[in-house]
Design a protein around this nucleic acid. Sequence first.
DNA 1: AGCGATTATATCGCACAAGATATAATCGCT
DNA 2: AGCGATTATATCTTGTGCGATATAATCGCT
Lengths: 159, 159
Amino acid sequence: MKVALATPPDTATLLDLDKQLCFPLYAASRLLTRIYQPLLERYGLTYPQYIVLMILWEKTPCSVTEIGERALLNSNTLTPLLKRLEQQGVITRTRDSGDERVVMIALTEHGRALKSKCACIPTEMQQRLGFDPDKAIALKQLLDEFLRHLRAHASDHLA
Amino acid sequence: MKVALATPPDTATLLDLDKQLCFPLYAASRLLTRIYQPLLERYGLTYPQYIVLMILWEKTPCSVTEIGERALLNSNTLTPLLKRLEQQGVITRTRDSGDERVVMIALTEHGRALKSKCACIPTEMQQRLGFDPDKAIALKQLLDEFLRHLRAHASDHLA
DNA sequence: AGCGATTATATCGCACAAGATATAATCGCT
DNA sequence: AGCGATTATATCTTGTGCGATATAATCGCT
């Protein structure tokens, strides 16, 4: 016979929005992106485009696949995004002469110049956020660990 | 004259993808949503739709604005999402008789029934994730705090 | 060399997101 | 009562995201 039905983990309760891990992740991601937006639109960039540029600022040129692995985005998202960056004159897209399947993405002069213009963004974001730096670091560490876990786990699920 | 230019926080370095807080947030949010997907598509739901349903399972009916405040989504996102849920017979949309500007969203019988069908999802996600529960709790707490901070802060920036 | 399997991008369709703007109903003040 | 301001949704446009599929180039094996 069922006895201690009184106390928690009853399944209905677990469906409360406030109990979810995913929701604050999802909401915080969108809100933080919104705070980036006014800083980025000065240069005509969206947040995902900024991610791609950060990858290219570290190493250029990069193949589409390399960018996808780093940003965790597939070609169906990257192709149009990269075409927009190309139209803005920020990057070039060139087929690799050695392997014609590969499209190499390289920064233009303008794209390189954007790096120094964007250099103030991380600091400015930190100021605008005004979130306790210690907590931000703790959060980032946990998130990085969680992301590593998810990446390792994702391959399980694709199998 | 500039002297100690050698050591860190030089601005260029801060643009490294690995230094960013937003990127793991953004990436983890998308990866986690992907893990939800196979569980949700059994019931023809997307993750944002599931969020809205969790809100309605706690309290029905709700106005569009109430849902928007809870889910942090605006009408331009909610209106089409809610219309799709209506077409699926999960919710109804009715103008409030007292105030015709307000559209009240209520669960249908089917929508209510989905709650018990979805009851297993939180537990199943936890199992599938296999992420250290203590770390998950710590992460959620930090995220909740960060989200509260962002919400409070967002209003500053909208001003 | 020949050809099926693999790989790298691209395309298509659908569903968010969010700013800007439109529309209609209600409120508040005189 | 009248009317400008506010409020609640809806619509339009642009830009992601992502599953499914298409296409073209390369690889691997015989």
